[in-house]
């Protein structure tokens, strides 16, 4: 079984983003970029499936500007076998990404597509579900557990009320949550080896997909800032303030 896995180049999760002074977008100039943390977990899971003998090949896909190659190399260093970069300098919305992925699925015929449940930049949480819809595949979203058998996968999903276990028919699209695994750090020899692994560059047009805007970004603003309050010296003072000043207890 082939596993297709996706990675997105996003702002490093430790960096606090700033809004541009003209409110057109956030400012990503000279900001540290990294693999979206959820995508890293997806890659790790795919590589573990290969190590367990359940997957035969791990193909990693990214979409965006040319420098997304860096994130593909990271995935290759973690253990993916080959990479596809669908290069575009346009804004690729989730549905467009899902349409390109659907074409790649058609070509590659993976048994599983593993993706992050959301990217920490746009926080949309939708591309995996959209890909599942376009390909008619089953979907297991927000998963924190996975067991693959011949024609189905059992997934543990993190839901509002607790945990849910579903059996989804293969091929399936899975989107991963934080607690599925702890991604490995790529070793130096593996980073060197990754440089020699195949990386193919394509465009959305190669897959017959036209980049279409479904939304227009009108404005980006910083959120209302919360002012820091006061420090209290003791529990007694805290209780007094909560009772008499804030009147919340």
């Amino acid at each position: 079984m082939k596993v297709l896995v996706t990675v997105k180049r996003v702002i490093d999760y430790n960096v606090k983003v700033r809004v541009k002074p003209d409110n057109t977008d956030v400012d990503l100039k000279n900001v540290k970029m990294a693999v979206n943390p959820f995508c890293e977990i997806a890659v790790e899971e795919a590589v573990r499936l290969k190590e367990a003998g359940k997957a035969t090949e791990v193909v990693v896909v990214s979409m965006g500007a040319q420098n997304a190659q860096e994130q593909l190399r990271t995935a290759l260093a973690m253990g993916a076998d080959r990479a596809i970069l669908v290069q575009s300098d346009e804004v690729l919305e989730s549905l467009t990404v899902a349409k390109v992925l659907a074409k790649i699925v058609e070509e590659e015929q993976p048994g599983l597509v593993i993706m992050g449940k959301q990217s920490i930049d746009t926080d949309n949480n939708q591309t995996g579900q959209m890909l599942a819809a376009l390909t008619g595949m089953s979907q297991g979203t927000f998963i924190s557990g996975l067991e693959v058998s011949d024609n189905e996968a059992q997934v543990v999903r993190e839901i509002d009320g607790g945990l849910q276990t579903l059996a989804v028919k293969l091929p399936a699209v899975l989107t991963v949550d934080l607690r599925l695994n702890e991604p490995r750090y790529a070793s130096l020899p593996n980073i060197m080896k990754a440089k020699k692994k195949p990386l193919e560059t394509k465009t959305p047009a190669d897959y017959g997909v036209t980049v279409k805007a479904h939304t227009r970004l009108l404005k980006v603003e910083p959120p209302a800032e919360r002012q820091a309050g006061i420090k209290v010296a003791s529990v007694a003072e805290l209780v007094e303030k909560l009772k008499n000043e804030a009147k919340v207890i």
């Binding site: 919305e93 989730s94 549905l95 899902a98 926080d123 949309n124 949480n125 939708q126 591309t127 995996g128 579900q129 959209m130 890909l131 599942a132 819809a133 376009l134 979907q139 979203t141 927000f142 999903r157 993190e158 839901i159 509002d160 479904h214 939304t215």
Partner: peptide, 21 residues
């Protein structure tokens, strides 16, 4: 909710539209 987040993007793609999350 986790239900809405699960099925709504699937609905959007079936209708060939985007989703505003």
């Amino acid at each position: 909710t986790t239900n809405g987040k699960n099925f709504m993007p699937r609905v959007a793609a079936l209708l060939d539209v985007g989703q505003i999350s």
